[in-house]
Design a protein around this nucleic acid. Structure first.
Lengths: 179, 179
DNA sequence: GGGCTATGAATGAACG
DNA sequence: CGTTCATTCATAGCCC
């Protein structure tokens, strides 16, 4: 599926201070936090559990927990969630609707995505979610978040840009219309 | 990250476009985007026209346009501009270090010895550029009212982390409760 | 084959 | 929050 797929590559990269147990930092330059895979795993787990904007207290606890796996500060956790959340949205937008699809699709079907699911704080995950994967890393990731209602307000801004039939490619003039 | 990437592509690369001449981009499988010459041309052109950080809408339009020349996604365009801008800045920075010791007291326009890289740099924002018509976009909505209410609530979301199963990590629990 | 360079992709950090 | 910057990882393409 080349269409939507984009070559993401699992990092699995070299030395990301894998399980050293102590200071995650591999001794070399410590300009910025370099999360260990365990830390990422935990954070991701939390995120997938629905946690999106941890409070200060939560951040404290989480970072405290994660410090076991390596050096980490509260702000790292804070930023991590900020970024993760932002990027998820961003990705949704950028994955875009491009490529052959906006054709003349009459979609009078105008659902009113307005006030329905405006759940600001999606789910409150509860329950016991098992953190800390036993047996080091289990790569079994494949779930998709299904409790994410996905608000995603994409107001269709009518762009004049006539994409009508891209088949005959416009005169390569990206400077498109000024008027 | 994990979100939907799923598509970790296996390194099946090997034969990369065998003899398609490079720009042909014959749908080589996943991997990373390999812009065609035309695509690069357009992007570069846009960049030189002063476009540095296209908005989401612009990105989508550009990518739609460029999709004619070959497979491309919005994020490719996004990254392209990000990288291009960053590298330009990076280069310039390098160059500045270049003069590390010689202090150019004389400020007059001395022809820089580097003609190789014609870095069009300064912000020459072209008014007329007006990439995409945004006339329809009603900017007057200015208010926006972004009330700043971050501390929405500390609802009792209890994450019961039943940890304590593995390793020597203390049996701590990330139980975040109301506070 | 093995470095080297250019560049796509990713993400931590921070700004407005 | 959304957006932007800086740094880094990962590869394709060259050149030796």
């Amino acid at each position: 599926m080349d269409d939507g797929m984009s070559g993401f590559c699992i990092k699995a990269s070299s030395f990301r201070s894998g399980g050293d147990g102590g200071n995650g930092n591999s001794g070399t330059k410590c300009g910025r936090w370099n999360p260990t895979i365990e830390q990422v795993k935990v954070l991701t787990d939390l995120f997938r559990s629905g946690l999106r904007t941890p409070s200060t207290d939560q951040i404290q606890k989480i970072s405290s927990q994660l410090s076991f796996y390596g050096k980490i500060e509260s702000k790292n956790v804070f930023y991590w969630f900020q970024n993760h959340k932002a990027r998820e949205r961003q990705k949704r937008r950028k994955v875009s609707i491009d490529d052959k699809d906006i054709i003349r699709r009459d979609q009078e079907n105008k659902p009113s995505p307005k006030q329905i699911n405006q759940v600001s704080e999606p789910v409150r995950v509860i329950e016991t979610l098992q953190l800390f994967p036993i047996n080091s890393l289990n790569e079994s990731e494949g779930e998709k978040l299904r409790f994410h209602a996905n608000e995603y307000c994409k107001e269709a801004s009518a762009f004049t840009y006539t994409v009508g039939t891209e088949m005959d490619l416009p005169p390569l003039d990206l400077r498109l219309s000024f008027h």
